[in-house]
Amino acid sequence: MRTNADFLQHLRSEIADSQKRRETFVKAKLAFVVALLGVGTISIHGKLGATPLLYLVPLISFVLDLYILGEDFSVKRAGRFIKTSPAAPDEEQLWEEVVEDWRDWHSYWAAPLASAIVLVAAALGVKLSGADDLPFWAWFFLSLLLILPVAVYSKRRKKSLASFEKKLKKRRIDAPTVETVSVTDDILSVDLTDGRTISVPVEWFPRLVHATAEERMKWKLTGNGQGIHWEGIDEDISVEGLLAGKSSGESQTSFKRWLNRR
């Protein structure tokens, strides 16, 4: 069973992986578009040449835009979760908040705008090749319709993220927060703001068992009072977990590794 710290580390890894995949899709889009625009404008001995490839440019751009926006949404969604998580360090939460508040206004419109520019470039190439008006305009407006879903999807994802964060915050706010914490050799006792006191065996949390009295006293609140962190032993316990009666989910391998380092 994983601890909250393990989960957050896994979430950070997911963010890094999504960022790498997003970068890969952006590079793939650039490579395909440049290649098709370049090859598509080549005329071979005055014949048809490779001009029909230009018709594929908007379609490929559209498909890759969906992948790019999907990975971008995954990154932002995970960031919003960390921002509201009581188990996340205060500085990391602050950073996520700053990043969100100072995000470039055009970030949500970058993909549809880029696709529109690509479409115009492809349309110029097709038109200069001598394409008939009716097929050209039919293709152009159909391609333009592909850009609209990208713009709508981007807009809806922005609203979805705001709703996602609002629901997370409501759930965090509804939960009681910590007032005081005391740790003895046998009992971990936590007083909550709603008047309840949670007392659980210290043995539920092996790091606290092996901590010194001084280390046990050096705790601080995280996540707006919904988590407790002991810096000296790198232990995190959430109110939600205590209320659910959950003991430490740290594996024996991880605990033994930590114990050997002491």
Rank of each mutant, 00 (worst) to 15 (best):
R2S: 06
T3E: 00
A5S: 10
F7Q: 09
E14C: 09
D17V: 15
K20G: 02
R21A: 10
R22H: 03
E23Y: 06
F25S: 06
A31P: 01
V34R: 04
G38F: 04
G38W: 02
I42W: 13
K47L: 13
V57F: 01
I60D: 01
V63H: 10
V75S: 12
A88R: 00
P89S: 01
P89D: 01
E91V: 15
E91H: 12
E100T: 15
E100L: 15
R103L: 07
R103H: 07
Y108D: 08
L113A: 11
S115T: 11
L124M: 08
V126R: 00
S129N: 05
A131V: 15
A131F: 13
A131G: 12
L134S: 03
F136I: 02
L144P: 06
L145W: 06
L146D: 04
I147V: 15
V150N: 09
V152D: 05
K155M: 11
S160K: 00
R171V: 14
R171G: 15
V183T: 09
G195H: 13
A211R: 02
E215G: 14
M217W: 03
W219I: 01
W219F: 08
W219T: 01
D234V: 13
G241K: 02
L243D: 07
A244Q: 12
G249E: 04
R257F: 10
L259Q: 12
